[in-house]
Design a protein around this nucleic acid. Structure first.
Lengths: 124, 124
DNA sequence: TATCGTACTACGACTGACATAGTATGTCAA
DNA sequence: TTGACATACTATGTCAGTCGTAGTACGATA
């Protein structure tokens, strides 16, 4: 568990869980548990996606045709998993979210005091 | 109206509307309509807060003791307005949100392709 | 006299996140 | 062989923040 005093609230990440998942699926098909661990490792435990959030994101995104699922028991033999792969529509959506993120970063930053990593201004 | 193709979705800003409002109130007491216009101008119309969102934020934040309201008809004579001022607890909350934002920016950025304004970013 | 800008309030719907709980298999150690 | 633990999910219901829709009311301006 991350024992940050400043944890990331789910309201902030809200709407970006999908983007995170798609980012991972862009590197190849994967399944719930693996994606969950990948998010942990990418963020160095700073963000841990909840299981229910993850699986409900799958359902939603498959309905939106951003991802497609298939069954695979893997090489291990037993235990079947549901793998997901990103679709072209998912790819497009991902790209849009990336553009949106750049805009959002800019906008929110204007209301933030402290860091003063100005948006335009790339390093001194 | 901002005719951006990439508009900011409310899910992203969610949880930062309060921060924006507090940012403005840090500069002195204000009221709904004015704050709304300030947000528009600060963001250059890139983000326009909905009236209902704004007023429900007031209610919520006053309940949380982040802001305190008082009636004032202004210098114009008629038309009474409800002004809000930030409290010390609100100030503290604002500071926390700013810290959280820096963390969030870092985390989300790791899943974004394109801009490559990496934070630390080792780039290939 | 009507329209527009100002300054709100009320109410209900929607959505994403999440708590809680349960199922089921495989692995490993005591 | 038994139980704990990791894996890999599904089901169900709740909550909070946002937003659509609508309505009220005042003042200024044309």
């Amino acid at each position: 568990m991350p024992e940050n005093n400043t944890a990331i609230s789910s309201d902030v990440i809200r709407g970006y869980n999908d983007t995170m998942i798609l980012h991972i699926l862009r590197q190849g098909p994967s399944y719930g548990y693996e994606i969950s661990k990948r998010i942990r490792s990418i963020t160095e435990d700073k963000y841990i996606i909840k299981e229910t959030t993850l699986y409900s994101a799958f359902t939603r995104m498959e309905k939106n045709n951003y991802i497609r699922s298939y069954e695979d028991s893997g090489d291990t033999g037993g235990k079947k998993r549901t793998y997901y792969r990103i679709t072209e529509e998912g790819q497009r959506y991902y790209n849009e979210k990336c553009a949106e993120w750049e805009l959002t970063k800019d906008v929110v930053q204007r209301f933030i005091e402290g860091g003063e990593h100005g948006n335009d201004q790339k390093l001194s």
